[in-house]
Nucleic acid binder design. Structure first.
Lengths: 141, 141
DNA sequence: GTAAAGGCGACCAATCTGGTCCGATATTAG
DNA sequence: CTAATATCGGACCAGATTGGTCGCCTTTAC
């Protein structure tokens, strides 16, 4: 008997990095004002990849979402209000600007009216989706 | 000089198949009541892969979205009102049920409250997204 | 009967992602 | 001052997923 292999869909999915970032951010949100969490601690607490977690947090740090303190007792803490941190922003930082249906490069039909006639309304769809991601803040999570 | 390589993001993207399907469906929508379009015609008209297009349409046909007629003068036509065909349905047919952040298998933390505390609200996000996809019909496109 | 169309399964290749290793740098405890 | 611990950043490799192709078969119009 084959064991329940759900066809894991790749499309329309958050990247692992974004996933991890949200987990970490949410943990940081629960911290006291003076406290901080190290990447190592976050990784071990949530089962995140040990070597990938610092990378993710570094990106968040240089984007200004979290504040990193070096040194022996260092770690990360939120740099902004949880209300101001949106899922859309996190995704954009870690995976870039998502496009539902990017124009395929070097395709002749990209100039065709009939085709871009479709791609434009798809843009509406995308805009709606981004709206959803924009409205979902860390505080709402 | 490296030529403008925008980091095409894979995540949060429609699959190519869904993309093609929407293009094809939209073309079928513009058809007269008795007319039909062959996969070949659709492919050449929109620059879709010739061998992949029939496959996509076949899936749509067996899902009941389009009606296929065999034979020399065969082709496809819409089998339902454009108003009743949603993007969500198309995606589900071609790529399966999308999950924003599927639980990683075999992870110990899946039982942890802190973790699934996050995944549940992510479910809300997903539900909102699916709502958007559900509301966007072929007629709206 | 022949040509053109869809139906279906298997297979291969390119791409993307995720994960790891490596080192360098900065800061704090003692 | 020194050592330990933290962040930072690049390069690299392997696995997974997607997408595209080839093949053969059935059905229908002429």
């Amino acid at each position: 008997m084959v064991a329940f292999t759900r066809p894991t869909v790749q499309m329309l999915r958050l990247s692992r990095k974004s996933d991890y970032a949200l987990v970490a951010l949410k943990a940081l949100r629960a911290l006291g004002p003076g406290d901080a969490l190290s990447a190592r601690e976050l990784a071990s607490r949530f089962g995140l990849p040990v070597d990938l977690t610092p990378k993710v947090l570094a990106r968040l740090a240089q984007a200004g979402l979290v504040q990193a303190t070096l040194g022996k007792t260092g770690g990360y803490r939120l740099a902004r209000d949880a209300e101001s941190i949106t899922v859309a922003e996190v995704v954009r930082i870690l995976d870039g600007d998502p496009e539902l249906a990017p124009c395929r490069e070097g395709i002749l039909e990209c100039n065709r009216i009939a085709d871009c006639d479709l791609r434009h309304p798809l843009g509406n769809l995308q805009r709606e989706m981004m709206n959803v991601l924009d409205r979902m803040t860390l505080a709402n999570l």
